[in-house]
Design a protein around this nucleic acid. Structure first.
Lengths: 326, 326
DNA sequence: GAAGACTACTAGAGCGCTCCAGTGAGAGCC
DNA sequence: GGCTCTCACTGGAGCGCTCTAGTAGTCTTC
């Protein structure tokens, strides 16, 4: 910076003014400084600039490496954060890097706030974290008062899905339950509500987050005789639905003719032309945006927070659901 | 830090010594300082510590958000970097955040070196980047002299795969080509080499990175009469293979009885029990480790670099390849 | 019992920025 | 012409650490 200043014949402070794009430099000087910087290949050091500044304007994001849907939320966060002059510090969770490790890193970087995507941390730990800096949990519902939650209205989404299946004429509708995965509880609730509303008997099988869990459930579905077999399945998520569907097809069952299959999330693979999975869409973009809004509100106070942290789900009817055959 | 020093009755420098875990403090003082820090909830600020240090020991990692295989490589990098006291700065590429954006961020953070995973950047840009700091390209082969490349021996992998298929008795073996995706060229080369070796006629169809591309190829395969239809397909990667396979099964073709299908990468989904995709395994862990080793060598000079940046591929024979039916 | 070698600790400059208080020069006004 | 205002710019103190040079104090060693 010193060198740039010398070359442009100005003070270091002026160079700073130019690079921060704040008023206080004439247009001609500005160009001069920029030219000098370009010649020297100078680029400001963000770490130093953050040190000198009172606010770091950094948002930590803890997410699961390799989780497609998390990646989509991160994309939304990148966009929303960029719009408001915040930087995003990613901290990935992987088999060898625990969520605690990831949180520790975010803390050490002096982020001003943190968003946890689909966290599996204990409420106690989350509460402690929230005591240190503004925290928002995306995807996972939490009853910790100091933590903002941004999530999809999953219960409503599943209700809508069951309504759709019922509307097609299905009665034996099974739910592949996500256990204690983030989002599993409200989906279960929505399923039960809708089944009750239509006077149908709920039935659940163990599902999960991955294709494998869906494939396992296929065995149990096929164990029934055709007359008792469920005619429709609402899987915990898309990957689970995909795994189920492929296992069923491989065993010779036709989808949707013999069994309707639906997922949740609307990941990219669900929309592929050859798949056409009926599913409940979560809007990752909106989730990311809302998370950033909430944190901004906590940090800046000024702007009104989004009225709610709940994003509506959208039923995406594609090709894997149809009226039952007989 | 000042507060901690005051509370422990020592100088700031001593607190620094304790937290950096370097010699120069007695065991009792060390405990004293740590206790004082704990009471005050003090945690050192990494950004400031890096500023004061000559070396930042930060490795920038540019990767595709939502690319499963990239995520696995990142995990390997986290592990290898941690072992040698380096920190990892993730910079994700997404639809709205270009690779150039990601690289710019890494530069502004003053990372000491950068690893590009499956980069799509123009060689010119990569060369320029490499002129500024040590750069290694993982997955993508590059003929830029200043850039280290760490990749799988993809040509050998595909040769081995074709050998396997030929050994099963296949003759009409088709390759779903990845176009200009990272790794497509060597896979193509390996395919052609092996086909030539066995005197078989090579045939390629357009494949790609996603399930969708595989599903599209299925149409073309099914356009052949059974007598002329390929009996085995080597897809560009696992996702492409999975898409192809599901499309084929859905059309009533049996895998592997009527068509053998194989992929590349060995992503988690390939290994699921209900899938059992025969594939060529890339070792993401090793790739990540090698990338870090190379950068360490460039940065520290001392340690001998790994002899080669090429990781062997491993043929994983599972259930989707079998002798041709006739 | 003085020189030398350790060990435990401290003072203070420095890392590359930001930002506040201030300087000087010119414009506008009566 | 003197006054205030604004604008462009500068000096220098910080931000929270690291790290070198140095100061005591203790332990050897002959």
């Amino acid at each position: 910076m010193e060198d740039v200043a010398a070359r442009a014949g100005v003070s270091r402070a002026l160079v700073s003014i130019v690079f921060r794009q704040v008023p206080g430099a004439s247009e001609s000087t500005r160009r001069h400084v920029l030219a000098a910087a370009a010649e020297l290949g100078y680029q400001p050091d963000r770490r130093a600039s953050r040190l000198g500044r009172s606010r770091t304007r950094m948002l930590g994001v803890v997410f699961g490496l390799g989780h497609d849907f998390h990646a989509e939320v991160v994309d939304g966060i990148y966009a929303a954060a960029g719009d408001h002059g915040y930087e995003v510090v990613l901290s990935g969770v992987s088999p060898r890097r625990t969520e605690s490790d990831a949180v520790r890193a975010v803390l050490a970087e002096r982020c001003e706030a943190v968003v946890l995507i689909g966290t599996q941390l204990a409420s106690r730990d989350i509460a402690e974290l929230a005591g240190r800096l503004p925290t928002v949990s995306v995807l996972r519902q939490l009853r910790v008062p100091s933590v903002d939650v941004v999530r999809t209205d999953e219960a409503a989404g599943l209700e809508e899905l069951v309504d759709h299946l019922h509307g097609l004429g299905h009665e034996r509708i099974v739910h592949l339950d996500g256990g204690n995965a983030p989002g599993a509880a409200p989906r279960r609730r929505g399923y039960l509500t809708a089944m009750n509303r239509w006077g149908l008997e709920p039935a659940s099988l163990v599902g999960g987050l991955t294709e494998e869990s869906g494939a396992k459930a296929a065995d149990q579905i096929l164990a029934h005789t055709a007359a008792h077999r469920p005619t429709a399945v609402a899987a915990f998520n898309d990957r689970c639905a995909l795994g189920l569907m492929h296992a069923l097809i491989r065993r010779g069952l036709h989808v949707p003719e013999e069994v309707s299959v639906a997922g949740f999330d609307d990941i990219a693979a669900a929309g592929y032309a050859h798949v056409g999975l009926t599913t409940v869409r979560q809007d990752p973009d909106r989730l990311g945006q809302l998370a950033v809004d909430r944190l901004r509100h906590r940090l800046e106070g000024g702007t009104a927070p989004s009225p709610t942290g709940v994003v509506p789900a959208t039923l995406m009817i594609r090709k894997t659901t149809a009226p039952p055959s007989a």
